[in-house]
Every structure is written in structure tokens, then in C-alpha cells.
Design a protein around this nucleic acid. Sequence first.
RNA 1: GUCCCUGUAGCUCAGCUGGACAGAGCGGCUGCCUUCUAAGCAGCGGGUCGAGGGUUCGAAUCCCUCCAGGGACUCCA
Length: 552
Amino acid sequence: MLKEELASCLRQAVLKAQQEGVLAAAALPEVLVEHPQNPEHGDFASGLPLRMARAMRMAPMVIAEKVSEHIVPPPKVDRVWVAPPGFINFTLRGDWLSTEVESILAAGESYGDTELGKGKRVQVEFVSVNPTGPLHVGHGRGAVLGSTLANVLTASGYGVEKEYYINDMGNQIATFGRSLYARYQQCLGRETEVPSDGYHGGYMIDLAKEIVQEQGDRFLSLPESDGASQLGEVGVARMLRGIKQDLELLNVVFDIWFSESSLHQGGQYNKAMELLQSGGYVVEKANATWFESSALGEDKDNVLVRSDGSPTYFASDIAYHYNKFLERKFDQVINIWGADHQGHVPRMKAVLRALGCDPEQLKVIICQLVTLRRGEEVVKVSKRSGDIVTLKEVIEEVGPDACRFIFLSRSADSQMDFDIELAKRQSAENPVYYVQYAHARIASILRLAEQRDIDYSRGDVSLLATEPELTLIRRLILLPEIVERVAVTLEPHHLPYYAQDLATVFHSFYKQCRVVSDDEPLTKARLKLVRASQIALAKTLRLMGMSTPEKM
RNA sequence: GUCCCUGUAGCUCAGCUGGACAGAGCGGCUGCCUUCUAAGCAGCGGGUCGAGGGUUCGAAUCCCUCCAGGGACUCCA
């Protein structure tokens, strides 16, 4: 990539200057090359002289001068110059930029892909919501984040598997079964109450009704506990189906739906516990079995098996990660959790150490909670109590593309208000449509070219030399950098910002440069540029899991 | 009480591995449709970067204290 090329260029210049004794000997700091925000400062810039000033005991401007004198720039660089207080700036040659259009056309849909991952296997586990209720907006955020990351990592040369972990056993499931059984009985005319700690949402009534309709009263004759567990199973299966459908509305699809209970049936649970035991991390106290995480630097221990003999969620999670790392041998695992799971990160890392894995192999992305609101009114989203606004309702109201874009536009670290009113009200002036409109516009130009039978395959890109054209190309060649940045930082929010920037630059180009005109050679050259723009924009939209409309 | 995230323009947010005048969208105000989509373009206005200290030639960015909002500290998940 260009940045690295220039960085090594700078490194060599410094070394050469030092060998000649023009620059003081000093260790070279990391050479950072960046895009200046002000275009007058060139396409690339480095503040290297500023960083070296102290160690060399020389003025930054002097260092900058000496270094720049020793730079042997690659042919694609047009100009290297020094600017106060000590920057070295680079500009790219216009004719080199224009030939990049050909590279983009040649790359086609693979434009933006990199080999960063070198085929390493990465698992992205996300959503993984208990199948005890429908998804709400907060889950949508994790879903969009995870699926986008998976897209980007795939484009970056990783072997990616997207997985949903199903908590299909334990307390919550039992409570769900009892609640559903109560609703079921009520539905069939029996007097009974939903347990106070149960699921009171209206969706449980609908679910009970559906099951009555489909399977009649056959669970009624069972003993209470059997009825609850069997009905619970039926209910979980139905909830999962619904969750899957809702996610598909958002363009989120999983490779694997992994069952928690399978870890107990398949032996992973026992194996993981034995491994911890043999490592000496397991202790019995107060009638329960504990993971001695305090021995690994944690502030407290955690229960694995309760005094009633039932395993905790944490124990299953250990078995799950045992399976991820030791059985399926993923090189890297990315878990996307809500902020309410923040505190579990350190103990999970401790587990990895206890299992003999490198904690660095596990990356946990904590995404902050989403507050749903309609204007001033805050909408509660608790599953346990009362009615909720489901993700499905929000998607239907706002639209999947807008939902995805809104979720992606904020970094996972910042909590967000999802204002349905705002999301809808904005729709005319929404950045989502602004970006998609640029794509539709491009499509419309290319349609016109097709109608007029213009074959631009031999267009001469060297004719692309005006400022709006070159500015557009500069944005186009940024895409691989953006993709790589997202893959490295695991921060997909850079994508929507790039998309918007690219759209802005395209719209501006469109205004200033007539594409299909009487000037045949120029028309063909510009059509190539337009097509390259489409490739970059469509790629960005696809990475974000959004549609690429041909018309709007 | 301890730990984590956040606090930047009226609103929603980027920027935060320290560097060139602090950015975008929305909203407000001005202009621009005989030519490929005006869901567009060009421009204007708008900021004590939560507060106070510190480190540095240089701090929105690093350190400390405080304030505010959210989350976590369950033999819940």
C-alpha cells in the first residue's frame, strides 16, 4: 500500500542522511504517513521530523529539509516538499492517479479486497440472544456490527464463520417454559398465573395461542413440570425461527447456529471442566464448584456448578470456548457482547489462560446499549415485563438499509438513542439515501451510455486530468485502506463515513463534469471513471450489507 | 464503594497510537434545474472539544482530580 511505500521511502532517506552525517544518529521512531485533512498539504504527509527533533537535538524544519533532500520518491510521486513546523508532504502524479481507474476496473467486485488475513480462520459470534423473546433494537445493533465485520474480514482474506450461540438450557429457558405453560393453560380456559419472575410480554400470549391452534391441548394432561419443559422446547424452536426471520430482514445470515445443550451432550463440558481441574483452577467451597479466577489475577472467583448441582451459564461458556479454540481451532474469535456483559471479558480471558490459550486470540467487542425512543418518549425494551417494540417493527418502519446505516454510523463504544421518529423523518435527507442516490445516479449514467451504444472499453483514462476527476480518483483509491483499517481495528463505523465522503465527491464531480457529451474520447474516459466509482461505492454498500439501487 | 464506556456546533455523531486554522450530517440562512436523477450542487452562519490541574516545543487526543449520563459488580443470563 502507498502509505507503507512512502514510509519506507522516508526511513531510507533518514538512514542515508545519517550515514552522510547530515543528520544526528538517533533511533528511528515509527514512521507514520497520513492523509492531511487539508488538501493543500498534499496527498500524504509525515510529521516524522517533529518526532525526531528531540532525539536529534535539531530543529524540526532542518531535519525535514535534510530528509527530503535524501528522499528518492517513487515515480508515482509528483512533488515532495517541506512545510512548517516540520512536515514532509507528498503529492501524487495526476497521470498515475488516472491509471488507477484501470486497476479498479480490472479488479471489479474484488476491488478493495486485501490479503491481510492470509487465510486465517476467524469466528465472529454475535447476537446470541436467548430464544425467550423477540429481538429488539439493541440486538439489531450487534447484528449489524457483526455481519458487517464478517463481510469486511472476508474481504480481507480471512476465512470467516458467523455463529449464533443458542442458550437453550438453564434458568431462563425453564422460566420461559413455565411462563409459556401458564399462558397455554389460560388459553385453554384454566385459571393460572404467569410466575412473577416469568416472561409477561404479550408475545407470550400469541405464542401460546399459536401452539394451541397447531397442537391442541395435548400438553394439558402432562404433569406441570413436564408440560412446562416440553412446551418450552416447542416455544424455543418457534422463537428461534422468528429470530432468524427478523435477522434476515436486516440482511443478517449465520453460518452456524450453535446449541448450548450440545456442549453437555457432546462431552465438551466435561472435557473443559477436567482441563480446568487438572490445571488446578477448580475448588469446592460452600457446597458449590468454583473457578479460581482470583489465582489468575481476577478480583473474585466464579461459580461453575451451583450447590444444587446445575452448571452455570459461565460453565457452559467455558465449554463453548474450549470448543472454539481447542476443538475447532479458530485462529481468532471475535465475540460481540452488549455493554451489560462488560464485566465478563476479564474472566473469559482468564479462562483462556487456564485452558492454555493466548487471550489475545479472543477479541470481545462491547457494544453500548441502545435506547429506543419516539421523539421524547423512551420506549422500554425489557423482555420480562410488559410490551416491547421489536426489532422487526423498527425494521418495517424505518427500512433495513437505513437501520443498518444508522447502526453502523456510531462507534460501538458510544451509547446511542435510536429515535424512530428521527430515523423516519430524516428519510428524505438521510445520509443513507444520499449515498444510495449517488449509486443510482451512476447507474443512470451508465444506462444512458448503454442506450447510446457507447463502448467505452478502450477509453483513454489519461484524459482524466481536471481537479474534480482527480479528486474523485483520490477517494476511490482510499477504499482498500478503509477496508484494512476496519479489519484491523474492528471498527466498522469508518465505512459509512467513507461512503458518504465518496458520494459527496461523486456528486460534486457529476455537477462539474458532463459525462456523456459530444466529446467522444472524453466521454469514454469519464465513463470509465464513473464505472470505477460504481465499483467502489457498490463495494462499500455491500460490505455494509446494504442494497445498491439502480434507480431511486 | 470498585471497574468499564461516554461527555466535541442547536440536534445526531466522526476525529482521540499528541502535531499544520477542530470536521460531517441534520436543522437555519443565500444562490443554482433548456443538457446524464435538484433524494443534487455552491456558499454563509454556528464550538470555553464537560470542568480544573499536569506532562510537552505542541493536548480534543496522554496523566491526575472532579462533575454528569449509561453499564457491570448474582450459586441471572
